[in-house]
Computed example of a mutant assay.
Amino acid sequence: MKKILAAVDFSEPSKNAARYALALAKDIPGSSLTLYYTYEVMTAGSDGTPLLVDTDARKVIASGALNNLKAELGDAGNVNIDIAIEPGRLSSTLVKYVEHLGIELIVMGITGTSRLEQIIIGSNTLSVISEDICPVLIVPADATYKKINKAVLTTDLKDVASTTPVKELQSVLSDLKPELSVAHVAFEVGEMPDSIKKEKDALQKMLERFNPAFFHITDPDFIDAIDKFVKEYKPDMIITVPRKHSFFKKLFTESYTKKLAYNSQLPILAIHSK
């Protein structure tokens, strides 16, 4: 997880995500950071007529803005910072760039409205997550970097062997070296079924060198369960393995964000299942 890319659009949340990305990179020896910006080659005139963008002029402006942001980030320590500007839609253009350069982590900000409990993930962030390019770290708009000493992996303990992104998880955990907790939420009260115990044992074996602590939580509401867990154990990052784009999006729809508002400073790392 040493090649890090921060996707920016010059909004304050994206600038904050870039600051977070640099601080994270400084904590991972040998890391590099790319500040990445894309722009549409077509725009709409006042009457809605499609107009071609002056790409050369746009690149010059974007290059200046990215270099200004690079300067604003301040001391980069031993982290090499590059800038990249490409025409096209973010998600499709980013796929090619990430694959070509071997980017291992994308860092993006959350676009928020005026009230904390109304925070939602921006459409660009969702589109990048849905592409399943590489792990994506979602940084809340007001988050400030704190060394990742504790992380919690949320899991439903289903089909662990075929769905767990072991390589990506091990890479993240090896680089960050956090104290790892694994939180499984059961919706009904009762003893853990044998099938779930087997899945737990399988995941335990996959992650055994990280010595994870497992927690079995009973709660009919997944978000409430994670809420309580985070309040009690105070992790610095949540790691989730969304099986589908819609599952991840569900966590951030307006009906759930109020329950997650307490967690506004906590980054969430999405690593797609295999």
Rank of each mutant, 00 (worst) to 15 (best):
156 D>A: 09
172 V>Q: 13
140 P>Y: 03
156 D>H: 02
147 K>D: 09
194 D>C: 13
117 E>V: 11
117 E>T: 09
153 L>H: 07
177 K>Y: 09
149 N>C: 05
120 I>D: 06
164 T>R: 05
145 Y>S: 02
191 E>I: 10
187 F>L: 14
162 S>L: 02
191 E>L: 11
151 A>C: 00
115 R>M: 15
192 M>H: 09
172 V>N: 04
188 E>A: 07
140 P>V: 01
129 I>A: 07
138 I>C: 07
204 Q>N: 09
198 K>I: 15
175 D>M: 10
176 L>R: 09
186 A>Q: 15
173 L>Q: 05
186 A>V: 11
130 S>I: 01
130 S>K: 11
128 V>E: 01
193 P>T: 12
126 L>V: 08
171 S>W: 05
140 P>R: 07
181 S>V: 02
167 K>Y: 14
142 D>E: 14
193 P>W: 06
129 I>E: 07
202 A>M: 06
122 G>V: 00
194 D>T: 15
178 P>N: 04
194 D>K: 15
175 D>P: 08
110 I>E: 03
204 Q>R: 05
181 S>R: 04
183 A>W: 06
196 I>C: 13
141 A>G: 00
118 Q>E: 15
119 I>P: 04
119 I>Q: 10
187 F>S: 12
196 I>T: 15
201 D>T: 05
113 T>L: 14
106 I>V: 09
145 Y>Q: 08
132 D>M: 11
117 E>K: 15
106 I>D: 02
145 Y>C: 09
190 G>P: 03
176 L>H: 08
159 D>E: 14
106 I>K: 01
109 G>P: 08
194 D>F: 14
180 L>N: 00
187 F>G: 08
172 V>T: 13
177 K>P: 08
116 L>E: 13
135 P>W: 01
151 A>L: 08
175 D>G: 08
187 F>I: 10
165 P>R: 00
136 V>R: 05
164 T>P: 05
149 N>T: 05
187 F>A: 10
124 N>Y: 04
196 I>H: 14
204 Q>C: 02
146 K>C: 11
